[in-house]
């Protein structure tokens, strides 16, 4: 049994008077791909914000590698070894792709290693190399997703958090992004991804949680979940989920 890298315990969050999470608890084991599934307004993206310190929970505890990071400002959370691929990618559109990648290494100060890592990213994402000096805002959605992933990896995170990595991508790119997530994971980076498209996420995840209106209603090994027809129909958008994704 591998060790636990990220753990959320009894999280309650609010937007003003509206409660989003009701005692949310989940954990991510080191080396795995863990997926958080759920429909619109289930609180998925808010979970991401809580982990990254963009939103402070009213109750509960977030710990990373055994250390309490609840309420830490975002830049310090990142420095603990967490990388983020935000929803809708959020590249710095007026900066070049190279500058975006280097921004990913902002929290590091080992210049020489950063240069080597940049080269490694370009091997992992060959498409990015051709666009290196272009402004990030001019890239297609799929290319931007790759830059966003590479940017997060430039921080040498132990855990990478991805918010809807396949959203808005063409089917071709969706498969490519999923492959890349697996490749990243094989290199030893733990992945926590939030996904609306459950059947896609379950293809590559090891473990999954289903979130509904702020509560975890289901969890288990991804393979079992994908095979269970009852679960699929009730929570994962039915057998035609893949068609809607395409």
């Amino acid at each position: 049994m591998s060790t636990e890298l990220l753990r959320l315990e009894g999280i309650d969050t609010f937007y003003g008077p509206v409660q989003v999470h009701f005692g949310l608890s989940l954990s991510v084991r080191a080396g795995q791909i863990v997926s958080l599934l759920g429909g619109n307004a289930s609180g998925k993206s808010t979970t991401m914000k809580v982990i990254l310190g963009l939103l402070r929970p009213r109750a509960g505890r977030v710990s990373f590698d055994g250390r309490d990071i609840t309420g830490l400002p975002t830049h310090q959370v990142i420095r603990q070894g967490i990388g983020s691929v935000p929803e809708a990618r959020r590249l710095f559109g007026a900066m070049t792709v190279r500058e975006n990648l280097l921004m990913g290494a902002f929290a590091r100060s080992d210049r020489l290693v950063i240069a080597r890592d940049l080269e490694r990213m370009l091997e992992l994402f060959p498409r990015v190399r051709q666009r290196l000096e272009n402004r990030a805002g001019t890239l297609s959605g799929g290319e931007q997703q790759m830059v966003a992933m590479a940017r997060a990896l430039m921080g040498r995170p132990r855990l990478i958090c991805m918010d809807e990595p396949t959203m808005g991508l063409s089917p071709l790119f969706v498969d490519r992004v999923l492959e890349l997530i697996q490749a990243v994971n094989r290199e030893g980076v733990t992945v926590f991804m939030v996904e609306q498209n459950a059947s896609l996420a379950l293809q590559i995840a090891h473990y999954a949680y289903v979130l509904q209106t702020g509560r975890i209603i289901l969890q288990g090994e991804a393979g079992e979940m994908a095979r269970n027809p009852k679960i699929r129909d009730a929570y994962l958008g039915g057998p035609d989920a893949k068609a809607t994704a395409a």
């Binding site: 990254l52 963009l54 400002p73 975002t74 830049h75 990142i78 420095r79 983020s84 935000p86 959020r90 590249l91 710095f92 559109g93 007026a94 900066m95 921004m103 990913g104 902002f106 929290a107 940017r151 921080g155």
Partner: peptide, 10 residues
């Protein structure tokens, strides 16, 4: 360009 994204870069 993007305050939240910048935070997420540390």
């Amino acid at each position: 360009q993007d305050r939240d994204a910048a935070r997420q870069m540390g």
